[in-house]
Design a protein around this nucleic acid. Structure first.
Lengths: 130, 130
DNA sequence: ATAAACCGTGTATCATAGTACACGGTCAAG
DNA sequence: CTTGACCGTGTACTATGATACACGGTTTAT
């Protein structure tokens, strides 16, 4: 199974410009080419893009994924390194959750200040924030 | 109390380019000018930038703040509108928290798959995601 | 009087994650 | 054998929230 870029992008569920973009960003190594210079991809490449997309959904940026792929591509100590990567990201996500919870309760606070008849009063939210 | 842009930006705790940027984005109305064309600001403007910055920290984007300021600047029904703005943002933040919690538990799942001696095995995280 | 500090406008740049388009070559079907 | 679909490269553009810089005019301090 060998694909040219359009079919490959379809298989991966992404735009073909995204594939070229990932190549420029070195998330995908230079693919083999036909004699006319067309990129050709294998099913392994589909799996790699799948990996990128799934880990991206877990909150990793492309530059983090680039480093992570460096780990994937080397055999030594990758298990240890992956564990650390994931642990670090987990801590970041936990912090984001805490931050958002604080914001959520501040928004709730603001709502509590509103009078019951919202037509009749000056706005305490604006006053609180000014 | 009247300020030119540098002192004004200092009072607001932002860069003066940010002030000009907010003006371009219509978050600040066109300021009065000296005869030489220099922008001049009052203490009310400091309060307005303070409002922008505080509400930005609550997760509102500048384009949302732009709409919100439209509410602030009109007197009618602003209390009702503010309440709705804040409620809508609160729901968004709650959703973000839920999403991040799901991600956090997925990251935790991945960690659980790791063997105890991280040197010795192939990496289950990579296998799971591939 | 002159240098330093300040202000104006316009444009460019940063990071992030792509998307779009122009221009030209290649390939397959009718 | 020509048309349409596909591919290549390079460049520009999207949104977001600023930040920086060049070039020229103004104000302030010494």
């Amino acid at each position: 199974m060998i694909y040219r870029i359009s079919k490959f992008a379809d298989k991966c569920g992404v735009n073909k410009e995204t594939i070229r973009y990932y190549e420029r960003k070195n998330l995908l190594q230079e693919p083999h080419r036909t004699e006319a210079g067309y990129r050709i991809y294998s099913y392994d490449d589909v799996k790699r893009v799948g990996f990128i997309k799934r880990i991206q959904e877990l909150g990793f940026s492309l530059s983090e994924i680039y480093k992570l792929l460096g780990v994937v591509d080397k055999d030594e100590v990758r298990c240890q390194d992956m564990f650390e990567f994931v642990s670090k990201k987990q801590k970041e996500v936990q912090k984001q959750i805490e931050d958002l919870k604080r914001i959520e309760s501040m928004l709730d606070d603001l709502k509590q200040r509103c009078p019951d008849e919202k037509q009749l009063h000056s706005c305490p939210i604006i006053e609180t924030l000014t």
